[in-house]
Design a protein around this nucleic acid. Structure first.
Lengths: 214, 214, 214, 214
DNA sequence: TATGAATGAGCCTTCATTCAT
DNA sequence: CATGAATGAAGGCTCATTCAT
């Protein structure tokens, strides 16, 4: 769960800018409420299944007011995606404090799976929405940047773990994580997530055993 | 690229039933034309971006006729997904003829990457559409069945390759393949597909070295 | 239940013209089958809720064939109404054999209520369809003729029963009968039909008591 | 003309709520305009013959706006029927001020016939629409309630008029009134309404003669 | 006689967006 | 800043009717 930003109900709330007058604070507050509601609705009903009217009603504000904060429905989507990305960065950053690379790796994987389970609906949304023709373009740069940063993170980590071919390995791992999320979403509930997670941690764990045991 | 069925412009064309009278043949022909056009348009513009009117115009048939062949716009989508699934099965089946499991594995991976490149737009569609809230339900059973079969295929193959923990390994591999497709689509063109592909083949190749070299 | 023709499942079947060759007989047969089916469907789903396609499928004939027998959907409707009218005439005619006018009257009322209960759906259809703007015009003459004849029947009967002002009385009675049907349909099942029926028979029965007892 | 609510062009106009701000007043105004137009069009062309487009054009508003006030085309219909019912209640209420029951009865009958003539098109609509399969269900409760109330009114009146068997008698009378309306609509213009009306008044008038004179 | 594929006009409904208040 | 009435383009879908076979 790397490329796709991890979102939960709280991550938007906490970010209200405190600077500025009362006016500005109110404005930021309303904006965040819209974003939060849109996020929940997009996740719940899809982008096309969510109407501006529905968002406004759930926010208990008027439809017109939404257009004071966002120019477009699409604009809301982009903002939502951006917030998600920020949450994704958070996920990465928190890990740097763990000194042992193997342990850090294990925690990263654990956290990744945890987030996937907690915010399943958001994941679906992100995958779904970014694969929509025309949407990716709006967001490609930032997404790519985040992807690069994630890869970089694992490259550095893998080097400390003495994994050879660290870059390719990083790409494979992140792909595997997102792919597992995808499959978990698509093939349903009886997916052996715990076993899979442990296998991943095992594979990269000290001492340097092969990933595929024979 | 396993879960998501692989589709290209030709695979539908070839399946026109030859039995039956002229009527039945015509009917099948029209149906296939609709499916084919819908597939292309869905891939090109997304499911919601594609209108029935557009499909009918591209097919040079009347709007109403489409509803002689499909009950719904959604019904067309499901049919498209089904066709894709069939192509997915085809992909698997062809491989059984290769006697050496390691070579078979390599071919499978190669083919998988090839298909991904050839039908990129369809891949996007499949991911996109299946992640749409409400759509998965229409298709969940068949998709799960196909997933199970894919896993089973790799389990058997891995056993012949003396890979321990074959089931988990199969899940990891298929996830990795789909995840790579996803990342390739999302982060753009400069993705080192060839290198990644080779690394995968390498990892599972004889002699039994570990997957992660240190 | 006088103005509105009384219809049951059998009344059309029995009327296939026996003259003519095999061809003509087949033709009449198909025509009757269409009419019968249309009648049932109109009653069940209303005129607008019934499609030509549905009629053809229930008849197990093609859509096109219907247009060999009827020029229009409307044409079918008119034919159905005509058949109903014929049944209405039948209802009246059968009564003339009863010599005692009071008994004849009682039987007529009984039969009228019986029919209403047996063919409720058809009744609804007739009322419904004839009140549709534009439909009545197609059928007005025949309906008026039938109404006149019904009135005439009661006028003659009432005269034999020594009812003064027989014509007005006939109009009131037939209106009452149809009105009761209407109310029965509209206000539901707990309508005291039996009591009402008996009251009517009572009112016109020998010896000449007043209709409204004080 | 009791069960079926009596409606004319004016009764909706008069009910615009005066409370509330300008917004609310405007809203009520538009709603009434839609209802009024729909009523006229339904009566004129039938429910199915009336399109939303037509209603909106006659109202000089956009098609979409109609759906701000009503969820459905059917919803408009129900609202129209409700208004009609209200008019029906009004018809009953006004009568209570007349002290002499016989005179009250006569006025009631007169008024009933008057209304029938004034709003013939609406009557047709009501009969027509309520007999449409599936429509009655939407409205059954309210209609039944009104019917019961009408019956109750006549029961009380008849008791004061010393009519025995007042309940049955009330059912017969209301049925007769609606039946006469139906016949008047169906068999055309030369129906002797005045004579029929007088006969009814006569029948229930003091002194206590029998209804059927011999 | 019989079929059913094909048409196309038209219907109900949705919804992002605007704007007067 | 805030409202929500109003717009209008467009979309999915229906269905009576036609016609080549």
């Amino acid at each position: 769960m790397l490329i796709i930003a991890l979102v939960d109900d709280s991550f938007i709330k906490g970010r209200i800018s405190v600077e500025g007058g009362k006016r500005a604070r109110m404005r930021a507050l309303t904006r965040q409420k819209i974003l939060q509601t849109a996020l929940a609705l997009f996740a719940e009903r899809g982008y096309f299944g969510t109407t501006i009217d529905l968002i406004s009603k759930r926010c208990r504000i008027s439809k017109g007011l939404i257009y004071h904060y966002f120019t477009n429905k699409q604009d809301i989507l982009v903002a939502v995606l951006e917030e998600g990305l920020r949450a994704g960065y958070d996920l990465l950053k928190g890990l740097e404090d763990i000194p042992d690379p193997f342990q850090q790796f294990a925690v990263m994987i654990e956290r990744s799976f945890d987030e996937m389970l907690r915010n399943e609906a958001y994941w679906r949304l992100y995958f779904h929405v970014l694969l929509q023709p025309g949407v990716l373009e709006l967001f490609a740069q930032r997404l790519t940047a985040f992807y690069q940063e994630s890869i970089q993170y694992f490259v550095l980590l893998f080097r400390r773990m003495n994994v050879t071919n660290a870059e390719i390995e990083a790409r494979l791992l992140t792909a595997m994580l997102d792919g597992l999320g995808l499959h978990y979403f698509l093939v349903g509930r009886d997916f052996p997530l715990a076993a899979v997670k442990n296998a991943i941690i095992q594979r990269y764990s000290r001492p340097l055993d092969g990933n595929v045991d024979r």
